[in-house]
Structures are given as structure tokens and as C-alpha cells.
Nucleic acid binder design. Structure first.
Lengths: 217, 217
DNA sequence: AAGATTCCTTGATTCAGGTCAAGAAACTGT
DNA sequence: ACAGTTTCTTGACCTGAATCAAGGAATCTT
């Protein structure tokens, strides 16, 4: 996917005028990362925010004793590390590729320039508010729902209400994303398989037919 | 405290030019709320964001079965409900006064107008990014620390590293803010008192001398 | 000041999910 | 195809915190 095309279909870059978009495209540095490669570490200095073109990126933050709390999983078309814009010059989270990915680094100065455009600015603020809401929902989710519910919410949010999902990441990673230990997660999957609700084999998750209809979160 | 004076000393309103500030002041609707009074409910339609002048406001979101997850506690000088700006016309959380409070309602249209000012905009985006970081930290806190640690972090964040704190809210509210049940919280306080680390009597929390020095979070 | 709420404490009990351990299975690079 | 990782599963066990229950303290109301 080339950068120009990507920007065109990226939710809030597409509002840009064509020349504006070209400015962005020109300023972007394309970067490929392999699965498991780290894009930046928590605490790293940086000057750029990123736009994910292909693949999937996990953002997490270290807790005490190597524990990690997943902040979110970035999907293609989304940007991440916007915090670098004003806040400080260090990334507050670590980002690592869940699969081979392609991303574009957009220097902060360039972005500031773009923020002069009224439409762009509006979209950007909207985007921030959206993330804001997402994070508050995540807090509710982590504090008031159990692992099982969190799993289903994760699947719905991330892939939609499909009966067949190819998550493209390991069970361990999903466990992590729903905030559970691998062992706990494994046991949960076993329980669900026995109950006939879901099975995860050969990288594919199969939900029971009509599963989503009945569920209420 | 009058509105003009308030704006002057509010972190990111103070950057406004005097005439700009007057515009805001003129557009603001002063509102008093009594302790326990609800400012708006999750799901309510609304047009305004709020600036807290005096008092303390609790923002929370309902989980399943009446459970509530505290999103944050607003302190004087801070704004809340910014989400109303673009996102949608309904508040995503409930806000209730923890004490008698004074706040100013700022209509969204007016705010949009203000966003045309470059400085103001910059500050606003910075503010959003700050909250963003706060929320991600909250996620880490809730998922990787136990209630005790969360309590100390809460106290530090909210009141600073003092040896004597007057939280101005009930134990129940603090319990809630750190994501614990009142019973659990009560037991924790008992444990800490016995250990000589902290006692909470007559609305005042007294930490052991030098307490904050040693702690590491 | 009595009555009604709401808040706080303490006890007993339960449970989801974390921890430790140790194989089995699935990938990885060479 | 093989050794070497990493991931996955399963078992035994533990524990922090929720739940249920119930009495006492504080606060608000009239």
C-alpha cells in the first residue's frame, strides 16, 4: 500500500486537501518492522508519531516486576504515539509489532504545521476525544468485568461480531490484551470449548452460531 | 472566586488574551451544586463542558449491576466533560459533587470559537494528551498494583506528598476512587494503622513522618 | 432530640485469578 | 531435519479482594 493511497483511506487523513496530503506523504518516513520488533521503548526519546499501514502493533506499559499492561492494539490506518506531539520528547509506552508491519513516521514539526488547518485540527481533536473515551471504557472493563467478558468484548471491538475470526496473534498476546495470565486464559478457552461456545484451533477462532445475538455486554 | 479571576489562574485559560478571557467569562454560566448533587448523568444530552471553580467532582461510569468505576476526581481549576465538544451530544460518564461546588458551564459553540486561537488550541491539545497519559497510567495502576499501592498513589496524585492530608471526602469515596470495596478499604486502613504507617481520624489522614521518602512506586 | 439515613467496621466465607512447576506442542533459525 | 526457543496446557496451590451479614457510629432531617 503506498503512502498516498493509505492517507486517502485513513479515517482522518482523508479529510485533508490533496496538496496537504502530499505534504504529509513527503514528510513521512516509511519503516518496516518485523514481527516482535520493537518500534520504540517506553522512555525512548522521539520526534515522530506513527501511522500504521499494515500489520498490527501492541502498545503496552511496564508495571512493577516486568509485568506489562496492554494499553491497546493498533490496527492499520490508525496513528499512535501522538503523545509525542506536545507533552514531552519521550514515549510513555513501548510499542512492538505483533506481525510484520509497515508504518510511517511523521515528524512532530510537520504535524504541528498541519494542525494549522482548521479541518485537520478538528479531526485531530475528535480523534483524541475518541481515544479518551476508549480508555475510560477500558478502565471500566478492567475493573468491573471478568476475564471471560473481557475476552468477548475484545474480540468484538477488534474484529467485529464474526463467527470466524483469525486474530493473527498468539493466545498469549490475546491473554495479555484482555489482562489475564496465559494459564488463566488457557483454562478459560478450555472451559468455553467444553461449553461449546468457542474453539480456537489452527489460528482460527470459531464462535458458536448465533453467539453474538444472545450475548449482552 | 469570580469567573474572571478564576480563568486567570486556571492553568490553561490563563494563556488567553484578556479580551478572549472576557468572551469566555461572558459565555459561562455559573452553577452551584450541593454535595451529592448530580451535575449530569451518563447518557444525558448536553451542550456544555464545565470548569470547576470550587469544590470537587467525581466522574464515574456505570458498570454491570450498578457497579461504578471511578474515572477521575476533578479538582478546582480543571475542566471536565470536554468529550461533549465533538464526539456526540451525550455525556459518557456521570458527574456528581463530592462537596458543595461551584462550576461554570461553557457552551460548546463558544469553545469552538476559542479553538481558533492558535495558543489556545495548542494548550487544549496538550491538555488532552495529558489526560490521555493519566488514563493510561490509571490502567496500569488498576491492573498491576494492589489496593494498598493504589491508595498511596491516589493520595500522592491527588494531594501531593504531605504528611497530613484532609481529603475532604468520605472513606467510601476514596475506596471507590482506588477501586476497592468499602469493607476491603476499612480493613486496609486498620492494617496500616496497626503498622503505624497511617491513620485517618477526624477527616484527617496522618502519614508517618518521612513516609514518602522511603516509598517507591 | 428522636428517628432515619448513610457510613464505617468486623467477622465469616467464597472465589476468580495469580503463582509455581513441569511436560507437550509448536515454531525458529541453521 | 535438528536443536533450541517460545508457546501452550494442565495440575496443585495460594491469596487478595469480593460478598454476605450484622452491629455500631456518624450525619442529616424534621
Amino acid at each position: 500500500m503506498d503512502i498516498d493511497h493509505l492517507l486517502e483511506q485513513t479515517a482522518w487523513f482523508k479529510g485533508l486537501s490533496a496538496p496537504n496530503r502530499e505534504t504529509v506523504a513527503a514528510a513521512c518516513l516509511r519503516r518496516r518492522v518485523k514481527k516482535k520488533e520493537i518500534v520504540f521503548l517506553e522512555g525512548d526519546r522521539g520526534e515522530s508519531l506513527f501511522l500504521l499501514a499494515q500489520g498490527s502493533i501492541r502498545l503496552y506499559k511496564a508495571g512493577p516486576g516486568g509485568r506489562e499492561a496492554i494499553i491497546r492494539i493498533v490496527k492499520p490506518g490508525e496513528i499512535f504515539a501522538e503523545v509525542i506531539l506536545f507533552e514531552k520528547d519521550r514515549y510513555p509506552v513501548t510499542s512492538v509489532a505483533l506481525k510484520d508491519s509497515i508504518l510511517y513516521a511523521l515528524p512532530r514539526a510537520k504535524f504541528h504545521e498541519m494542525l494549522k488547518g482548521e479541518d485537520f485540527r478538528r479531526d485531530f481533536i475528535r480523534l483524541l476525544l475518541e481515544k479518551h473515551r476508549y480508555l475510560t471504557e477500558r478502565i471500566v472493563s478492567l475493573t468491573s468485568y471478568d476475564v471471560e467478558t473481557r475476552l468477548f468484548r475484545f474480540l468484538r471491538d477488534q474484529f467485529g461480531e464474526l463467527e470466524e475470526i483469525t486474530p493473527g496473534m498468539s493466545k498469549k498476546d490475546v491473554a495479555n490484551a484482555v489482562g489475564a495470565m496465559p494459564e488463566t486464559f488457557s483454562r478459560l478457552l478450555m472451559k468455553l470449548r467444553r461449553a461449546g461456545a468457542l474453539k480456537w484451533e489452527d489460528r482460527v477462532i470459531r464462535l458458536k452460531k448465533g453467539f453474538w445475538k444472545k450475548t449482552e455486554f
